[in-house]
Amino acid sequence: MRKISLIALVLFGALLLYASSGLPGHGDPDGPSHRERSRVGSPVAAAHYIRHAQGDAASPNIVTVVLADYRGFDTLGETIVVLTAGLVCTLILRRSP
């Protein structure tokens, strides 16, 4: 292992440890992503999803509702990424040599 990559690794680790001290504590109920309103007053998505998921889609599992209903377009993109990965495997390995 070259010396410069070791130095870069140590610096990166120090940066990560320094940056993680600014995060809210693990499991803190008052963290920025758990609030009802953000610091500037706009509504936060997670509270809206928890409140309205069962009424909107008649399903108790909030993760499924967010995955397929509120963010369905995102999931379409992920499905196409998976399909593209399969096609790339076929193109790489089944190409005639």
Binding site: H34, Y49, I50, G55, V63
Partner: peptide, 10 residues
């Protein structure tokens, strides 16, 4: 589902 504090962020 009245209080979002009861559920983990999904």
């Amino acid at each position: 589902s009245a209080d979002p504090a009861h559920y983990i962020n999904p």
